[in-house]
Simulated scan of single mutants.
Amino acid sequence: MAGCFITFEGGEGAGKSTQIERLKSRLQHLAQPVLVTREPGGSPYAEELRAFILGGHAKQLGPFAEALLFAAARIDHLDKTIGPALKGGIHVLCDRFADSTRAYQGSLGNIDKGLIDQLEKVTLQGVKPNLTFILDLPAETGLARAGARQAGKGEGADRFEEEDISFHQSLRQAYLSIARSEPKRCVVINADQDPDEVETAIWAALQERLPQMTEQAVRSPDAA
C-alpha cells in the first residue's frame, strides 16, 4: 500500500516545522512509517537550488524565473525522495509544496494562473498531496515569530522574510483562497494559538480525513 502525502503550508512564522515534528512523533508512536522533508530542498540538487533561491540570487530574475527554479527543485525532490518513499509505503510530511509556488509566485508575482497550472502539470506528473494543512495566522504575528527565531539562531531574514508587511498580508489571503478552492484537500488550522492546541487540531483533522494514518500500524513478524 502506498504511503500518504501530507503537506504543510502557511506564511512565515506559522509554526510548520514544529507541527511537522509533533505529527511525526505521534505517527512513529503508532509504528507508522514516516519521512519528513521540505521545499525547496529535500534532495541534494534541490538543496543547492534552495540555497540559491533563499539567498535572494533569483529575485532579480523575476517571479517566473523563480517559479521555474522551484519547479526544477520539485522535480528532483519528487524523483529522488517523495516518489520512492510513497511507493515504499512510507508516509511523507512535507514543509511546503506546490501551493507555495501558487501563493508566492502565482498570486503575488502576478503570473497567469493558466501558466502556473501548466507548469504544475509538467512538474508534478499527477502527484498531489492527500491532505494539506494551511497554518493561518496574522502576518504581523508570523513575522514577529520569525524575527525572534532568527535572533535566537543569529541568522538574518531570507529572500521572502525580508519582504514588507503588505506582501505577507497578501500571502495570507492567497493561501486562504487556495483552501477555499480545494476544500476536500485543504484544512485551515488556526496557528495563532498555543502549539499544543494547534497540534490537537491537526490530529483531529487527520483522524477525520485520513483515519488509516492514526491507527496502530500492524507489523509482520519478519519486519525489522
Rank of each mutant, 00 (worst) to 15 (best):
Q105Y: 12
G55P: 08
Q28D: 13
C4S: 15
T101M: 08
P183D: 06
A98Y: 06
E162V: 11
A139C: 03
A31P: 06
L35G: 00
P183K: 10
E182P: 02
F64Q: 14
D99I: 04
H29R: 14
A98M: 14
K80Q: 15
R159T: 08
K184F: 08
K59D: 15
P40W: 05
A179I: 09
I116G: 07
G15S: 02
S181L: 13
P183G: 05
R219Y: 10
I82V: 15
T7R: 01
A148I: 11
Q173F: 09
P84M: 08
D99G: 07
A148P: 10
E48S: 13
G3W: 03
S100W: 02
Q212N: 12
L69R: 07
A151C: 06
A46T: 00
A223V: 08
F70H: 02
K128C: 10
C94Q: 04
F97K: 01
L115P: 04
C186K: 02
G114M: 11
A58S: 15
Q125H: 13
G114V: 11
V34F: 04
G56S: 11
S220H: 12
T123M: 12
L171I: 07
A179F: 05
A223Y: 10
A51M: 12
A103K: 03
L78W: 09
Q169K: 14
Q169I: 03
E47H: 04
G142M: 01
T141Y: 07
P195F: 06
S25D: 14
I165K: 14
R145A: 05
P40S: 03
G154A: 11
F70Y: 15
Q32A: 01
A71Y: 09
Q60N: 12
H91P: 02
H91Y: 06
G126D: 07
I202T: 02
P33C: 01
I178S: 01
A67S: 12
R96D: 07
L135G: 02
T7W: 05
Y45H: 11
G109Y: 12
R74T: 00
D99F: 06
E215Y: 06
A67C: 06
A67K: 03
H57F: 11
A205E: 14
G109F: 13
E120R: 12
F97V: 04
G147D: 14
L137G: 01
L119N: 01
V92Q: 01
D99A: 05
A139H: 04
Q19G: 09
P40K: 00
P44F: 10
I134V: 14
P84H: 06
P33G: 03
E162G: 08
G55C: 12
T214Q: 01
E199N: 15
T141N: 08
P195Q: 11
A14N: 00
A191V: 03
Q125C: 12
E155P: 09
G126K: 10
R180G: 06
Q32S: 02
V127N: 02
I165V: 11
F70W: 03
Q150C: 12
A204P: 07
E12H: 07
R50M: 08
E21P: 00
P195I: 01
A204E: 15
K153D: 08
Y45M: 13
N110W: 10
Y175T: 05
D164Y: 09
D222Y: 12
R38D: 00
Q28F: 12
G142K: 02
A217T: 05
L108Y: 13
I20S: 00
T7E: 02
T132N: 02
